[in-house]
Design a binder for these strands. Structure first.
Lengths: 240, 240
DNA sequence: TAACAATTAATTGTTGACAATTATACAAGG
DNA sequence: CCTTGTATAATTGTCAACAATTAATTGTTA
């Protein structure tokens, strides 16, 4: 069996992946400027190549390019997060329904193992590890659901809010609630009850969304769209 | 009231829109090569700018770039179309449900007017115009639903199959069926019964998907992934 | 000091050229 | 006839420089 030849990747593709991580993991604040020369130099590539990077991340909605004024890390206001969580709950409901339909006993074993790990790290209050396991669980459900574009869309939406995912898990009671939900989901999987699994994850994401909205945007602070320097920005929402 | 200043757009953004139309409207066949120099010249821009265009359309999944081998119009096989229609039916169901929730009597008037137009063009068998009205109806539902990212995702998926949408409407009985469905949807809108509207559109899209699959891919021809010259291609489906 | 204008600096938009890689054409050998 | 190898052509990857535009600075005046 011949090894799959490792495709070379252009500097733009590599840099795009790195810059994406910087953004989605929250090391670059929303609104932060992305000056072409500065960042091209950071990556050790030319400005031309970095412009390709910006185009890639612009389509992924992680970067916003204003003609002749440059690029910056995309901003999210309260409504953006609301929208993303509305869609996430529905899309994950689908993922869990289709996933359950394809579920084999082998899959089920793996899911049980993940939840067992969750119980362990939850017991010692390891928020970071629990969050990682939760994502691993979802990721595997998407695998089993086997609808590539569903994964693409979920990732497209998810990347924009990963930075908040972690704060979500720090909310008191969140871990316990998530763990309880996963136990129910395991039962639903075992019974091949996709509707039930979907309903549980729907509720969980809805609750997570509300928690994140409350903790990140508060319940009064309407516009969180601020530059690092504190100046408020107005954003033109043009249709595509 | 000051006029919105027309933002200048980079040559890449303009060319991207043009090339996108060429692709989604089917004037460029799937698999067609997109040589950088050739196309840069066609658009009257430099290769560097055209590479930005390719990055944009690659993220939109309309173009596939293989490192050091160039770009070509993205290919769709049977499974791709299946996936797109699975998601389309669920996403439009959501759009119709959320749309119904926001429906005002003014909106309803506009929808009624569109369906009245549909009756007219259907009577004279104008497939092209009927298809356009159908899209206009859906588009307005997305407007009323008012979830920007839902529109984005629907468009992302839709662009990949627009080329087949038209053949879908040429299938015998399709127009009559679509018209009947829209009449029911109008009733559901009037009764603010989002679930019913959603269910009808779900069924309609499911049927449309099956029709397109049958007419484009037949029921035996598994791999429609062929180059214009007839050579078959193998496509590596890497995870993102 | 605040407001405005003119100048300068910084940044983006775009291009053409060179290097590296891949595809093509063609000849020799099995 | 098909395969294999080599030289050539075509194409992509990358960069550095110039032009155009926007932002910042300075200077002037009320």
């Amino acid at each position: 069996m011949a090894a799959i030849p490792e495709l070379p990747r252009s500097v733009a593709a590599i840099a795009a992946q790195h810059l994406e991580r910087e953004i989605i993991e929250g090391r670059l604040n929303p609104g932060a400027r992305l000056a072409e020369e500065e960042w091209a130099e950071k990556f050790g590539i030319s400005r031309g190549s970095f412009r390709e990077v910006l185009r890639i991340l612009e389509t992924a909605r992680l970067v916003e390019i204003i003609p002749r004024r440059g690029a910056h890390v995309a901003l999210l206001n309260r409504r953006d997060v609301e929208e993303i969580y509305i869609l996430r709950k529905h899309l994950f409901e689908l993922a869990y329904i289709y996933g359950t339909a394809n579920m084999t006993d082998e899959h089920l074993k793996v899911f049980r193992a993940i939840v067992a790990d969750m119980e362990r790290v939850a017991a010692r209050g390891d928020v970071v590890e629990f969050s990682a396991l939760s994502q691993k669980f979802d990721d595997m459900v998407l695998d089993v659901a086997d609808i590539m574009r569903l994964r693409m869309v979920v990732e497209f939406l998810g990347k924009q809010t990963i930075r908040y995912r972690y704060v979500g898990f720090k909310i008191p009671g969140r871990i316990e609630r998530s763990l309880a939900a996963h136990r129910v989901i395991l039962d639903a999987f075992a019974a091949r009850d996709g509707e039930r699994a979907g309903a549980v994850v729907y509720e969980m994401i809805e609750w997570a969304g509300k928690s994140i909205l409350a903790s990140v945007f508060g319940d009064k602070a309407e516009e969180q769209e601020v530059e690092p320097d504190g100046r408020t920005r107005r954003r033109d929402r043009r249709e595509t």
